[in-house]
């Protein structure tokens, strides 16, 4: 077992590759043919770990030309089920092939009793679950022989048994295991609105030197609550939080998530590059404001992109 200090030091040495995009099947041909000037790509581990066909073939080509980060949705670090060693083995094999800058997943659980809800379910934030999760992070990091980076998920409820604020919970995780953090700025905004906390306070309280990556994304405002849909442009308030986080972290790798109603590649890339306008406190970028009349119902679908579209000649 490696010392948590070793993992913590490894996290602090991770590079900042710049502004990245998610690798989505809709853009496979464009990326291979045009080799666009994107700093790096984030790939959903589960989309590629079992693939012996086109997705894996494309990933190999992308990984030869761009830095890649592996982002997972099925580790289920918070579950009370045993860790899935088959899944971890495949994750390790994919990492050996792709050589990602780092591997990330979410602070969540996806199911128990061998079932999978394919959702990023909220963890109860108390001493019992902190001890449980830290123990599992240690096991995963030792198995993968590298630190793992954990993202704050969008949440739609909090438990009465929770006794620790989420930002403190994340801090304790890094202190106890040496893991890294992926700060999803949009998720902070969504969870803050849904669960009555101040997103600025949340970001201020995080251990900024453990943050190795940020996510930005669009969401659907439904009036009484917000759903993290990843299906549209980033809104004004999230860009403001990004500016704050950019300053507090001293600049880290940043990725725009867009997983539903995915636009053409150029539009997706252009939205990412807006981040450059929001890296200073002045924030001269163009803002999108949420209006009440735009409220619609929406479905939380964090794994919308996990089914292959069969290509037929």
């Amino acid at each position: 077992m490696k010392d948590k200090e070793a993992y913590s030091n490894a996290v602090k040495c991770l590079p900042n590759p710049g502004l990245g995009l998610g690798l989505r099947s809709k853009h496979f041909n464009y990326i291979i043919e045009h080799e666009p000037a994107v700093d790096w790509f984030e790939v959903i581990s589960e989309n590629f770990m079992d693939s012996g066909g086109r997705p894996r073939h494309v990933l190999r080509q992308v990984a030869e030309k761009y830095p890649v980060v592996m982002h997972g949705v099925s580790l289920s670090i918070g579950s009370t089920d045993p860790l899935n060693l088959e899944y971890l083995s495949k994750l390790k094999m994919l990492a050996a092939e792709v050589k990602p800058l780092w591997i990330s997943d979410h602070l969540c659980w996806t199911g128990v009793n061998s079932l999978n809800t394919h959702d990023l379910l909220p963890v109860v934030l108390n001493e019992e679950s902190l001890k449980h999760i830290c123990s599992r992070i240690n096991q995963v990091q030792d198995f993968l022989e590298r630190p793992v980076v954990f993202e704050n998920p969008s949440t739609y409820l909090t438990f009465k048994q929770s006794t620790i604020a989420e930002w403190d919970f994340l801090r304790y995780m890094t202190e106890e295991t040496g893991c890294g953090l992926l700060l999803d700025v949009n998720n902070v905004y969504v969870s803050g609105f849904n669960n009555d906390f101040d997103p600025v306070h949340y970001i201020n309280q995080l251990p900024h030197d453990s943050i190795v990556q940020m996510h930005i994304a669009g969401h659907q405002h439904c009036g009484d609550y917000i759903i993290d849909t990843h299906d549209r442009k980033v809104v004004n308030d999230v860009w403001k939080l990004f500016t704050l986080a950019w300053q507090l972290t001293g600049s880290v790798a940043t990725l725009l998530e867009w997983d539903s109603n995915i636009p053409e590649f150029e539009e997706y890339h252009a939205e990412l590059l807006k981040a450059k306008q929001f890296m200073s406190s002045i924030g001269s970028g163009e803002y999108i404001t949420e209006h009440g009349e735009q409220f619609e119902a929406a479905v939380s679908n964090p794994v919308d992109f996990l089914v292959n579209n069969v290509l037929i000649n």
């Binding site: 589960e46 770990m49 079992d50 099925s74 899935n84 899944y87 996806t110 199911g111 061998s114 079932l115 999978n116 809800t117 394919h118 794994v303 996990l306 089914v307 292959n308």
Partner: peptide, 8 residues
Amino acid sequence: PSESYTLN
């Protein structure tokens, strides 16, 4: 109900 880590 699903028992797999992948939706495929």
